[in-house]
Computed example of a mutant assay.
Amino acid sequence: MISTDFTHKHLEQAQSLIKQNYDEEKQSVSNLPEDTSIPDLTPFADNKLGVAVMEGERLLGFLCCYEPWDNAFGTNAKGTFSPLHAHGAISENRELIYRELYQKAAQKWVEQDITYHSVALFAHDEQAKKALFTYGFGLRCVDAVKSMDKLKVKQKANLQIRRLEQAEIPLIRPLREQLSAHLSESPCFMYSTEQGYQSWLSRAEQRNSKIYAAFEGEKAIAFIEAIHGGENFVTELHDMMSICGAFCLPKNRGEEIVQNLLNVMIDELKAEGYQWLGVDFESFNPTAYGFWNKYFEPYTNSVTRRIDEGILNRK
Rank of each mutant, 00 (worst) to 15 (best):
S28D: 03
V51Q: 12
A45C: 12
M54Q: 04
Q27G: 04
L151H: 05
E55M: 08
D46V: 13
K108Q: 12
G136D: 07
G136T: 04
E92W: 08
Y98F: 15
Q13K: 09
Y22D: 11
L11G: 02
G74I: 00
Q112K: 10
L11K: 08
T36V: 15
S91Q: 11
A14V: 07
L32H: 05
P83E: 05
K129P: 03
A123I: 01
V119A: 07
A128Y: 09
V51G: 08
S82N: 11
A72I: 02
S28P: 00
E55G: 00
N71H: 03
A144P: 05
D113N: 06
E92R: 05
A45G: 15
W109K: 12
L17H: 11
E111P: 01
Y22A: 15
E100W: 03
K154R: 13
T75A: 00
Y102M: 10
I18S: 14
E12Y: 08
T36H: 02
E100Q: 15
W69K: 08
A14C: 12
R94D: 07
K78C: 01
K19F: 15
W109A: 11
T115Y: 05
P43L: 08
A105Q: 14
Y135G: 10
W109G: 06
Y135W: 06
M148G: 07
I18Y: 14
K152V: 09
Q112S: 01
G61F: 11
Y135P: 00
S82H: 07
S82Q: 07
N76R: 03
T134W: 13
Q103H: 11
E55C: 03
F62H: 04
T36K: 02
E55Q: 12
K130C: 01
L49C: 01
D35E: 14
E111L: 07
H85K: 03
T36S: 10
A131N: 13
A131K: 09
H124W: 02
L84K: 04
L63Y: 09
N21E: 14
Y22T: 13
D113E: 05
S37M: 06
G88N: 14
N21P: 09
I97G: 11
V153P: 09
L132Q: 08
F44L: 14
I97S: 13
S37E: 11
D40Y: 11
P39K: 03
V29C: 12
F133L: 13
L17N: 12
K150M: 14
Q20A: 15
L101N: 10
I114M: 01
V142F: 13
E92G: 02
D143V: 04
L17Q: 11
L96S: 12
L101I: 08
